[in-house]
Write a protein that binds this DNA or RNA. Structure first.
Lengths: 245, 245
DNA sequence: TACTACATCTCGCAT
DNA sequence: ATGCGAGGTGTAGTA
């Protein structure tokens, strides 16, 4: 693709807040929270309407370089080829464009948000409405969602005069998760001036080391799966899919 | 763009392990580690040569949906429009394609790795070669000895018979960082059977609460910046850039 | 494989 | 702006 053609289309699309994608051979310098250099190779560059800049190599899931939304982006001629210079906050990206293979631009119309279920919040909600998931005598004191005594997921008491702090994790609980629970329990003991505070880790599973530390602190692990209400629908889809194959 | 044309180009590019990008109007269902639904809108869909699938809305830095490398991807006709079905591990993605606006495919040649400096490893290396950054009497032990103690960033001793555990963070240290350090110190006390173990948090800054907890445990904070050796080059570039503006 | 910790983490939420 | 914790976190390193 010709330099002049690219430059014109690029400027116009950028000004019109279109989305731009192009294939190119380039070399990249990054400076900001860290410093990086990526030698010449073919990449995909995506510029969104909010001036997000994302650069992908032909393999791997994550972008190799990027700038957050709101970047200042411009292209200038530099020693026979083009130089894309961009800045977002403290981060700077310089992309030497040796060759632009192909470019695609379009104004995209969206504005939808994704509905997502099965996160940690859904898990703690489930425990509040089904306290027996923790124990027969567990009584949650719903109320506090984010702050009050901290960021405790579910807080309550049992029938033996103990306060109970529940920490939910949607994945295998690790050492870090247990220290988090420990921190909350100690905060609660401090605030309430009592030693009768129990810790419960609610997660689908827990690593061996984490379980060891949990028990060392006299805490309990309870197996709880994150709720996925759309699961049946999707299961059906998968079954149908397998049938059609 | 015509369905039949898209289908043919898509299949061919996918089989040739080219990179594909297209603009489309679509509706997305995700099922796997969670469940999600995204109503109809315009998006950018990127399929890489390793069968990574990434879907972007026209704004925001992160993809709204994605599948990890190695996904099984196919497109089939479904009630007048196209249906892209993909699966990677336990994750399923169904994309109803109401209209494909434009498509770009190309075999990209890369294979370069990024050189990056200023990460936590660089920070701990710097401390090992310049122990005075921690204190005048700090003496780090050799790297070989270090490894058998686990995940400790820098380990050593001072002139007063104390073992010293250093935890590096490239950003503002938080409560979680301090509990991590605490965990390492306690592990070390246990392993060595001594109470004389000091904890040091090395980071550019530390939150007020984290500093409180740090001091409560008798640990110290030392201000250390992650090393960025290319910084001067980039600073010069920025200065030059400003001059040319 | 399981587990651990880093990441230019990003993002939202609350102070 | 800062602080704190979740994330469909992803990714690398190690046992």
């Amino acid at each position: 693709m010709e330099q002049a053609d690219f430059l014109e289309l690029f400027e116009r699309a950028l000004a019109a807040h279109q989305v731009l994608v192009f294939f190119c051979s380039c070399e990249i310098r990054y400076s900001g929270r860290a410093e990086a250099f990526l030698p010449q190779g073919d990449r995909v560059i995506l510029i969104k309407e909010d001036q997000t800049l994302i650069i992908h190599q032909p393999i791997n899931g994550n972008p190799i370089n990027y700038l957050k939304p709101g970047a200042e982006i411009r292209v200038e001629k530099h020693q026979g080829h083009l130089l894309l210079k961009a800045k977002s906050g403290k981060d700077y990206l310089d992309v030497e464009l040796f060759k632009v293979h192909d470019l695609m631009t379009k104004k995209l119309e969206d504005g939808q948000k994704q509905f997502l279920q099965g996160n940690e919040k859904d898990m703690s909600d489930m425990i509040k409405t089904q306290p027996s998931l923790i124990s027969d005598d567990f009584r949650p004191v719903s109320r506090e969602e984010h702050t009050k005594f901290g960021f405790i997921d579910v807080f309550g008491h049992d029938g033996k005069g103990n306060l109970v702090v529940v920490e939910c994790k949607r994945y295998t609980a690790s050492l870090a998760c247990v220290t988090q629970l420990r921190r909350y329990v100690e905060k609660m003991k401090d605030l309430k001036g009592t030693g009768k505070v129990k810790g419960v880790m609610a997660s689908p599973s827990i690593s061996t080391n984490a379980l060891g530390m949990l028990q060392q602190w006299g805490f309990r692990h309870v197996v709880v799966e994150p709720p996925k209400r759309l699961e049946r629908y999707n299961k059906d889809q998968r079954a149908l899919d397998a049938f059609l194959r």
